[in-house]
């Protein structure tokens, strides 16, 4: 019985996801597309839950609810114009070609996926034992955290590089022209109500506690630097939106330090392991857990700050003035 209902649920989820994706693309209004994309993110979290990937559901929750939506709406706010929509229908041939391309892409994707699924699973107790023994050696109990920070630490190291590059790129785009004024619309503006101060005062400490909790719990289960960093970044977005953080044209030494900290600490750990005659980022036995912990704390901050800066569209941020004193 339970299995059948599970199938019904997955089927409904499949239909909803595909319907939402189609409407995101087809909707005539950009605002509607943005809202639907946010809802799509909610359902992706449910899909991760169904696929037994709570780490990803957690990341989706923090990034989808806290960052993507605000990012899209803020862009929408800037680019809205008075021009009427262009309702020019494409030529039939062009339209058919587009549909054909999409179908081809989807077909190739499905075939590749099918091939991927038919790869033999290294099943049996032996493979499981081996994997568990490897994970246990890292000092963390959680397999995904172990993969991110030990077995495939290169990926994570390079990811920090990508984040830094995105911030530098955005800064280069912004440097040509500072953000439009009127950014402080919130403070003293029509949106300001005493509720905002109360909400920020109540939520901020809670969000910081939850970020710390996620970082700590990452050693045992779903959580870790990525999720904690994303939750912290969402707090930054909230503070930026309510005028508690204001953009700066230049970042101070401290913020620059935080931006490169994850990359620096990670590389340093790698060099240290090499200095002791091991491979790059092959932690010494027994020291793996403390090293991973230090790296994770650095990563959390170095993930949160770039995301906030990218949202803010400025080189730096500073605590702003608030009308409602705490």
């Amino acid at each position: 019985m339970g299995e059948l209902v599970g199938w019904v649920f997955d089927g409904l989820l499949a239909l909803s996801l595909v319907l939402l994706a189609a409407r995101v693309v087809a909707s005539a209004r950009l605002f509607e597309s943005i809202v639907l994309f946010i809802v799509f993110g909610l359902l992706m979290a449910i899909a991760w839950a169904r696929l037994a990937a709570p780490h990803l559901a957690l990341a989706e929750a923090a990034i989808g609810a806290g960052i993507t939506g605000a990012l899209l709406l803020s862009t929408f706010r800037e680019i809205v114009t008075d021009q009427p929509p262009s309702a020019e229908a494409p030529k039939v041939l062009v339209y058919r070609l587009r549909v054909l391309m999409a179908l081809l892409a989807g077909g190739v994707f499905a075939v590749l996926g099918w091939a991927l699924l038919s790869i033999e699973v290294p099943a049996g107790p032996a493979a499981g034992e081996q994997a568990r023994a490897l994970v246990a050696r890292t000092g963390v109990d959680d397999a995904v955290t172990a993969v991110l920070l030990d077995f495939r630490a290169y990926d994570t190291l390079l990811e920090m590089g990508v984040l830094l590059l995105a911030v530098l790129g955005a800064r280069a785009a912004v440097a040509a022209q500072p953000p439009a004024s009127g950014d402080d619309l919130w403070i003293g503006g029509e949106g300001d109500t005493p509720m905002v101060g109360a909400l920020v005062g109540l939520l901020s400490p809670l969000i910081i506690i939850v970020a710390g909790y996620l970082l700590w719990v990452g050693a045992y289960g779903p959580g870790g630097a990525f999720q904690a960093g994303a939750v912290l970044a969402a707090l930054g977005v909230l503070l930026r939106l309510t005028g508690r953080l204001v953009p700066l044209p230049r970042a101070g030494a401290f913020q620059r330090g935080v931006l490169v900290m994850g990359l620096a600490v990670f590389s340093l750990a790698g060099l240290l392991t090499m200095a002791t005659g091991r491979a790059f980022l092959q932690y010494p036995e027994g020291l793996a857990y403390p090293m991973i912990l230090v790296i994770e704390v650095a990563l959390t901050l170095s993930i949160a700050l770039p995301l906030v800066l990218l949202f803010s569209g400025s080189a730096g941020i500073a605590a702003g003035r608030s009308q409602h004193s705490p």
Binding site: L56, I67, T68, L72, D155, T156, A173, F226, G229
Partner: peptide
């Protein structure tokens, strides 16, 4: 799972970068 986790963070930063260029 670890790869997708990395991918999600990279996707959001790339999206933010792209949106910054659109605004510009």
């Amino acid at each position: 799972h670890a790869m997708v986790l990395t991918g999600i963070v990279i996707a959001v930063s790339a999206t933010a970068f792209a949106l910054a260029i659109v605004r510009h």
